[in-house]
Amino acid sequence: MRLERRLGQGWPLRRGWPWAGLVLLLLVPLVLPEGFYLDLLMFTFMYAAMSVGWDIMGGYAGYVSLGHVGFFGLGSYAAALLLVHLGLPVFITAPLVGLMASLLGAGLGFISLRTRGPAFVIVTLTFTYVAQLLMLDLKSVTGGSQGLFLPLLDLPANLVIVPFYYGMLALLVIAILVSIAIRRSKFGLGLIAIREDEGKAEASGVNTSLYKILAFAISVWFAGTAGALHAQYLNYVDPDLAFELIITLNLIIMSLFGSRGIVWGPVLGAFILYPLSAYLVFLVPSRVAGQVHLAALGIVLVLVVMFLPDGLIRSYQGWRTKRPKDARPLEARASIVETTG
């Protein structure tokens, strides 16, 4: 229980190993300039950062979003358009694109988070499709299904990945710091109160709608920003690539697998699952790889939901402390108090 609280509040920071890990990751491109590993790590960072973001809504507040890739895709398009039309480099616009995603998230939150119930699921579920449809139909701006080509970065081919590597790493560091800060703050406490018992939270004076909307806005900033960087990384965006369903699915699975509502849960999930799935996809014949990958991820999601809903970290803690699953009252001490009051 102690351990959980410490982990939940970002305890390892004081221990230093995350900082050591960070230094190590900072050095990787210098020692290991091979594209393959940098690419793998970069995508791991990207998924980890977005998962941590997803978890601010899905883990702390308990509202699972089925539409984060919508923000990722719109982020890709926004960054692409800013670059193509105004010549603004993506590495500068990415955080602002994230802010646009946040504003949009706040708007969708206003539609769907003022009441409890299924509205949030419905809106996030349909939002991705709407976004995709819009990008497809606004042909004059977005190029429709042709997509948009982004000017290449002016770097030698073997170094091109380096700025993306550091960019995604920075995004991950920000995500973790923000998540820790929220977990420690009264805001975070309010979100957890909402997850535990929303009616009671409201009766305690928590402005639940505002909290949820704010949490969602923060949550999607990471998806929007990552989408922006990703567009430049591919130098291309089209409606299929930008709104790939697998992205949302990955975020959900990584958060659940690592443990929802714990800062390091989604990070752990991403660092285990992304490399693994990259390796496994490698093994499947490419003709059906996409389909099999999708089905396999679906199966993984169902299995995790059924058998590991608490995730690795929380399950490990439960196993460590071996406390009974249902909380029992402290009878022995209770009797002392109740007679001496």
């Binding site: 800060a181 929220i182 420690r184 703050s185 009264k186 805001f187 975070g188 406490l189 309010g190 109160a193 939270a201 305690s204 004076g205 928590v206 402005n207 505002l210 909290y211 704010l214």
Partner: peptide, 15 residues
């Protein structure tokens, strides 16, 4: 939880 909250400061300051 019931303490009056959510100015910009409480967003990230200690609970």
């Amino acid at each position: 939880v019931p303490v009056r909250q959510l100015g910009l400061r409480t967003l990230f300051t200690a609970g």
